[in-house]
């Protein structure tokens, strides 16, 4: 990551100027635009959570990103970044066959939260519920935030990096051994 960033700062043209949509987005949300990164020809823009809804509406209404491909929460615990959680939004402009990724870092590491984009793309409902279920990110303004994948009464968020998948408790139910016979453990 750091090497790549160094390469980018050395490059003459910053990534955010490569895509005309990003130039306009930057002009629109100003300080909410935190930067952009390019990897293998794919651009992802960092957006501050406070500016997320403005950016989403602008991209949908004025730049044609009508389709939200997916929303994905990421636990960055082992990545060299200052925040713990980020939420990635992958957008598609179907007329121009253009894709754009937005990344919004969650401000609070312990109780991560993000404004919900369900009002902009109603299709975000299940994706955001999934991120809530698996990573524990709360989406403010979500119409029906609930666990959708893990079973009822499940505790914890399995896609967090510190969720131990080797220690799931197993519930054994022993039948009583007939009188006189030794128990299995003895």
């Amino acid at each position: 990551m750091s090497e790549e960033e160094r390469e980018q700062t050395e490059a003459e043209e910053p990534v955010e100027n490569k895509d005309p949509d990003l130039v306009l987005l930057q002009a629109k949300i100003g300080e909410g635009f935190l930067g952009a990164r390019e990897h293998r020809g794919q651009i992802s823009a960092q957006i501050a959570p406070a500016a997320l809804l403005d950016a989403a509406r602008f991209l949908r209404d004025e730049r044609g990103y009508k389709l939200l491909s997916f929303v994905c929460g990421v636990d960055c615990l082992e990545l060299p970044v200052s925040y713990r959680f980020k939420v990635t939004y992958s957008l598609l402009n179907p007329e121009k066959s253009q894709r754009l990724r937005l990344e919004a870092p969650c401000a609070d590491d312990l109780e991560p939260a993000m404004p919900s984009v369900c009002g902009v793309w109603p299709g975000a409902r299940l994706h955001e519920s999934e991120a809530y279920d698996l990573l524990g990110i709360t989406f403010e303004g979500h119409p029906e935030l609930e666990r959708i994948l893990t079973p009822e009464g499940f505790e914890g968020h399995p896609h967090r990096k510190d969720f131990d998948i080797s220690a799931e408790p197993v519930a054994f139910t022993f039948r009583d051994t007939p009188a006189g016979k030794p128990r299995a453990a003895e």
Binding site: M1, E4, H39, R40, Q42, S44, S69, F70, C72, V74, L79, T88, S90, R99, R101
Partner: peptide, 20 residues
Amino acid sequence: EGEVYQAIESPRGELGFYMI
């Protein structure tokens, strides 16, 4: 290091792998 998203047209629609 890096992150990519690759989408293909599966029989059901856009199947994508977002990988970090």
